[in-house]
Every structure is written in C-alpha cells, then in structure tokens.
C-alpha cells in the first residue's frame, strides 16, 4: 500500500469484486468441493454418495497404480527439472558471453516457448514413433531397439525428452536476464581477482544467479507436475494402458475415465497440499529476497 493511499471505501471494493467473484466461484468453490468429495464415495452413476471418512486417502496409499504414478512423477520431475535447468544455464552463460549475434541466439533459443505442450507432444510422437520415427530409426542403426508405447521406459524417455525440450526456453530467458542483471563492476572485480573463467563462474556468477535458480526450480517443479499434461496425453495417445503416467494425468484418468469422483478428489487434495507447500516455500523465499535487496 502506498503511504498516500486514497481513503475511499466503495470504489476499491468495486474494483475487487470481479477478481474476488471469479476466484470465489472458479477457485475456492471447486477447491472446497474437492476437499468435500474426497471424504465421500459415489456410486458409478453419481446418484448417491456416502461418507467414508479417510477411506479414499487410505485407498490411494495402498493403490499400487497410484504409488507407481507417484514414483514415476518423482523421477520425471527430477530429470526434467535438472536437465531443463542445466542445458538452459549452459546456453545462457554462452549467450551472455558472445558479442556477435547475441540477439539472434536469444531469439533462436526462446521461441519454442510459444509452442503448446500437446503440439510438442505430437512432434515427439512422430519423431519417436515405433516404426517410422526418425529418432527410432537413428537408434535402430545404433543397435538400440526402441518401442514407444510398448516399453515403459521407452515411453517415459520420450515424455522426458519432449518435456525438457519444451522447458529450456523459459529457463534460458530467466537465466540470461539474471546474468545480465549482474553488475558490470562485479564481473570486472572478479576478472581482476581470478584468472580462470571456470573458477569465476562457480565462485561469483553461480552464487549470484542462485535467486534466479531457486525461483526457476519451483517453476520447473510445477511445470513438470502440471503443465506437461498435454505432452503426456499426446505421447500415450490418450490411451494410457500400462504406460507411465504423472499424478495429474492419474487425476484425469481416474476422475473422467474411471468415474471415481471421491478417489480423484482425494488425489486433487494431495496435489493441492503439495503445491501449497511449494507456494509457502517460495513466498518465504521471495520475502527474504525483498529484505535482502
């Protein structure tokens, strides 16, 4: 709030009404609804529902399908986050260093941001296709048999590769702007203090990039958890079968295919708690950063 804030009462409330109404109806109501239905069991036709307490949750905890999805999501998130960040950081450091063509490189490395995840997934399907995919053929020449949609980890690796590919641009943009925000004088001081470029990177640049990195870490985790839905869905061709699945995809499959409102809601609640924890971590961190600067 500004120190010379306006003293009116009615007008700001009027300004807030649309936002509050929209999040009330389309955020808090569904969220509350999810929490509520996670304690009920519905019959397949949706006519009756009975209170079952924590049953939906205990069912999740013992469901091998769900636990498999959780395990896969963990591995998926770690791999996507790590590689998307590492590759983007490497490219950003190089793009920050070169003088000639810096602007063109930036354009070339960021435009993929605009491609929708399912479109990226479609490209993945075509490249990794079991019989005619170009990458499959390339691997075949190297003596590797690759079977998308049949072999669990083959499908997983396609999902992971496409997800990494799609996320590199965002990370690149943030790392590059983080690098460019490092004051010139600091770099020059480092140049005088240390001869080795590699040492300078790890001693000076990397720690100064840490805030950006942390922010991106959270962003990438949420990306891996949620925004990859389109990629996963296209790669399994909407027919999950025994293919790897992320937790969000599981919510979708159980809720819309399986008609299990209670179970799906319980999964939603679990994800909400997970994201809330991430949010709190991020807010804590943001607050500290504001005080820091």
């Amino acid at each position: 709030m500004k120190r010379a804030a306006f003293g009116h009462i009615g007008f700001p409330i009027l300004l807030l009404i649309p936002q509050i109404a929209i999040i009330g109806i389309f955020f808090y109501w569904p969220a509350g609804y999810a929490v509520h239905s996670s304690f009920f069991l519905q019959d397949p036709f949706g006519f009756t529902s009975t209170y079952v307490g924590m049953d939906n949750y205990t069912r999740l905890a013992t469901s091998s399908n769900y636990l498999d999805a959780a395990k896969f999501t963990l591995i998926f998130t770690i791999l996507v986050t790590f590689f998307a960040l590492a590759i983007a950081l490497l490219l950003a450091v190089k793009a920050d260093k070169v003088i000639r063509g810096a602007k063109s490189y930036r354009t070339l490395l960021m435009w993929v941001y605009a491609i929708a995840p399912p479109v990226a997934g479609l490209m993945g399907v075509m490249l990794f296709d079991q019989s005619r995919g170009n990458i499959t053929q390339l691997l075949g020449m190297m003596g590797i048999e690759y079977r998308l949609g049949v072999n669990y980890w083959d499908t997983a690796s396609a999902m992971i590769s496409v997800s990494i590919w799609k996320q590199i641009p965002v990370n690149f943009i943030f790392f590059l702007s983080g690098l460019q925000a490092i004051p010139r004088s600091v770099r020059e001081a480092a140049m005088i203090d240390n001869r080795s470029g590699t040492a300078r990177f790890w001693d000076i640049t990397f720690p100064l990039l840490a805030p950006t990195g942390f922010f991106l870490l959270i962003i990438n985790i949420t990306y891996s958890l949620f925004d990859t839905f389109g990629i996963v869905d296209t790669i399994v061709k909407s027919e999950p079968g025994n293919n790897p699945m992320t937790l969000v995809y599981r919510v979708f499959v159980d809720g819309f295919r399986g008609g299990d409102l209670g179970g799906s809601s319980a999964q939603s609640v679990v994800l909400m708690v997970l994201v809330l924890v991430l949010t709190i971590v991020q807010f804590r961190f943001l607050e500290r950063r504001i005080h820091y600067t």
Partner: peptide, 11 residues
Amino acid sequence: LLPLEVRILPS
C-alpha cells in the same frame, strides 16, 4: 500456484 489442473474435476 494452484493451477487449474489440480482442481480439474471439481471445476
């Protein structure tokens, strides 16, 4: 940070 995907069914 609670994207629509999380509360997709109730929404």
